[in-house]
């Protein structure tokens, strides 16, 4: 099965998606404090990696990477509400790009699979 990443058009399309997604996140008062980085390119690179992964593109993440990358955010207080908001903006971004609902659901499921890693919880919880 070709990945949504390839269907969207690979890296170029992901760049466009990053702009839309990042803008939504920055405009969200709940999330903005965690994503407000003076180095916007660095922040965008992280989001690109995230979008690449959840659309099934060539990402090289392990659960451990995910945990390490988000540990400081967890310490600062991110939780399920933030995760849900991010997934919501992800869906909104894909919708804007004309992605069908069933594919958006597939991406949602992929994102869901890293929830525990991002929030640094045991899978059993």
């Amino acid at each position: 099965m070709t990945s949504l990443y390839d269907e969207l058009g690979g890296a170029v399309a992901i760049d466009a998606a990053v702009d839309i997604f990042y803008r939504k996140v920055m405009a969200d008062d709940l999330l903005a404090p965690f994503f407000d980085d003076v180095d916007m390119e660095r922040q965008a690179a992280k989001q690109k990696a995230f979008l690449t992964m959840v659309t099934g593109g060539p990402a090289h993440y392990t659960g451990r990477d995910m945990r390490r990358a988000h540990a400081h955010l967890v310490a600062e207080g991110i939780g399920d509400a933030h995760f849900d908001a991010v997934v919501g903006h992800l869906a909104g971004t894909l919708k804007e790009l004309g992605v069908s609902d069933d594919k958006i659901a597939r991406v949602g499921a992929l994102a869901e699979s890293v929830r525990n890693d991002v929030l640094n919880r045991d899978p059993a919880v």
């Binding site: 760049d15 466009a16 990053v18 702009d19 990042y22 803008r23 920055m26 405009a27 407000d36 003076v38 916007m40 390119e41 965008a44």
Partner: peptide
């Protein structure tokens, strides 16, 4: 510069 960069992005300019 940093304030403008963020606001210009939020107002629709692509990061690139």
């Amino acid at each position: 510069v940093n304030a403008l960069k963020k606001q210009c992005f939020l107002r629709g300019a692509g990061l690139k």
